[in-house]
Structures are given as structure tokens and as C-alpha cells.
Amino acid sequence: MADGVKPRVKAPAKAAAGEAVVLKTLISHVMESGQRKNKDGSLIPRSIINRFTCEFNGTMVVDVEMHPAISTNPYFEFEAVIPATGELKFTWYDDDGSVYNDAKMVTVG
């Protein structure tokens, strides 16, 4: 696992039934592109988060395939429909096999 990886998620605590809510996510990660060189001229191996998913109560909201042109500390903004009270689950998949998670409860009513 890369050092200092920390996810942040912004989601509303409450929503109306069927409302589309805006979600924002950011995770601290260096996203080493595999294009840069060390001072000694050797290539720094690629090490990025290559996939991000958001699910609501097991239903897929968005599944993102990520490439090296995503900036350091990857940021996403998108919308999810909240049909009922439940849990948003956020998952980031690292090249090195690490998986990072966060979750937010959204209450309807």
C-alpha cells in the first residue's frame, strides 16, 4: 500500500426518495504515471489507482477505468439516485493490489 493514502467523500446525509444527489470524492495518492525518470535517469515504475467504483445498496452508480493522465490525488464528481435509505460504498483499486474503501449513509425521509 502506498504511503499516506486517505480517501475523502462528500455526500448529503439526507435525500428525498428518488432524488439525484451530487457526490464528490478525493483520495490522496501520488498516481505515478510511469513516464517520469529518477535523478539517475531510470524510469520510475507506474503506480496508480486504476479503478474507482461507487455503489448504492449494491447497485452500481459509476465504475471508472482510470489511466495515468488522471492527476495526483484523484478527484471525481458525479450523481447518484437515492431511492431509499441506504449506504453509498466507494472503492479505489491500486496497481499494487491495495483496495481503499469509504462509505456514507444517506437517509430518506
Binding site: K6, R8, K10, K24, L26, S28
Partner: peptide, 15 residues
């Protein structure tokens, strides 16, 4: 404060 990427490092500072 969510769009500001520096704030995740403030979170790490709080940890």
C-alpha cells in the same frame, strides 16, 4: 473545502 485538494492533507495532519 472539498474541491481544495490541500484539505485531505489537513485531514492527515489531524490524524
Amino acid at each position: 473545502d472539498f474541491d481544495n485538494p490541500g484539505m485531505v492533507f489537513v485531514d492527515l495532519g489531524m490524524d
